[in-house]
């Protein structure tokens, strides 16, 4: 770990003041950043501890929720309103990592997790994320866990978060604060696809701090769920995951939200599948058509072709379960 100075910010303004210098990083629970620093992948010279800031979960007028970026993952998962109104979010969180890590990790930090690609972690590997322009060893290497959607010749890594997948499905937005002021963007716009700059993973400006997540009111999200498929029964990253919410009226799909995890450089909102389903009939045929539409552009690598079929089946099964539940 490269030496750094550590300080705890008393408030958001102070945090942003200290965080807006080159080589400064915000420190949440540390569950990813400390590991990356120990690997010398991240080498900040200044750490601004923001865990003391924004740790409230507030009910918003009209029925939404505002979750402070410093709230621990466990606190979100166990919150009564999250469990009853956004169950996909609770389910996604408790399917991720381990209880110890969920007790440490913050919401803001979870959003900014970096990929688990082996070549990103290995100093001997070539990785455009780690050393832009050096090439990608995963393209022809071990890529069983890698992206089938939205990848580029420069990077085929996936975003590892479970929580983000549920948040993306639930139309969450992100409150940001930087030296230029505050802004509020949809979560779907936070993470970038790799393109030819895979080391730029978000649209955050230098020093910009995530201060909160906002969940809009969404009555049918009470019937949402999250399904994670992984090699090990627990404590493993997703091969494929699906977050979905389904609203059925008079035998037709009135509205639907679907997001996929483990398939792309960012949590993947399945907008095409949603379009196919919205207003249409309920049933396995429709669900399959929706999955196929979403995965039409999926491109397998040498080891991960199974993810296309796995994602297809998991989408169909999750929608089927939700339809059964709501019928």
């Amino acid at each position: 770990m490269t030496p750094f100075t550590y300080s705890r910010a008393a408030d958001t303004a102070e945090a942003v003041r200290r965080g807006t210098i080159p080589q400064a990083r915000y420190l949440g629970g540390g569950t990813n950043l400390v590991d990356l620093m120990r690997e010398e992948i991240e080498r900040p010279d200044t750490l601004v501890d923001v865990t003391g800031l924004s740790h409230e979960i507030e009910e918003l007028p009209g029925g939404g929720l505002r979750i402070g970026a410093g709230v621990r993952n466990t606190a979100v998962a166990e919150h009564r309103s999250v469990r009853s109104r956004y169950p996909a979010l609770s389910r996604a969180i408790v399917s991720g990592a381990s209880a110890q890590i969920r007790n440490m990790a913050t919401v803001g930090g979870n959003l900014l997790q970096r990929t688990r690609c082996a070549y990103f972690y290995d100093e001997a590997g070539q990785c455009n994320k780690r050393s832009p322009g050096k090439g990608c060893d995963a393209l022809e290497g071990f890529n069983r866990n890698h992206a089938i959607l939205g990848a580029s010749p420069a990077c085929v890594a996936v975003h590892p978060s479970d929580m983000c997948v549920a948040l993306v499905a639930l139309d969450a937005s992100v409150h940001l604060r930087g030296s230029a002021g505050v802004r509020h963007i949809p979560l779907t716009e936070l993470h970038r696809l790799p393109g030819d700059q895979p080391h730029v993973e978000t649209v955050l400006d230098p020093g910009e701090l995530i201060t909160a997540i906002e969940l809009p009111p969404q009555p049918f999200a009470a019937r949402s769920t999250y399904r994670k498929v992984r090699d090990r029964s627990s404590y493993a990253f997703a091969l494929v995951s699906v977050a979905a919410a389904l609203q059925i009226e008079d035998g037709h799909i009135r509205d639907v939200r679907i997001a996929l995890g483990g398939v792309a450089h960012r949590p993947w909102r399945a907008s095409r599948a949603e379009e196919v389903l919205r207003g249409g009939p309920v049933g396995a045929i429709a669900f399959a058509a929706a999955a196929d539409a979403e995965l039409a552009d999926a491109r397998p690598l040498s080891d991960n072709g199974f993810k296309i079929e796995l994602a297809r089946r998991t989408i169909i099964a999750v929608l089927g379960n939700l339809a059964g539940e709501t019928a």
Binding site: G29, D35, D49, Q100, I101
Partner: peptide, 14 residues
């Protein structure tokens, strides 16, 4: 609360 002490910087625990 249970946490992982390996990922925790000690200075965070004042």
């Amino acid at each position: 609360e249970r946490i992982l002490s390996c990922l925790a910087l000690a200075v965070q625990f004042e």
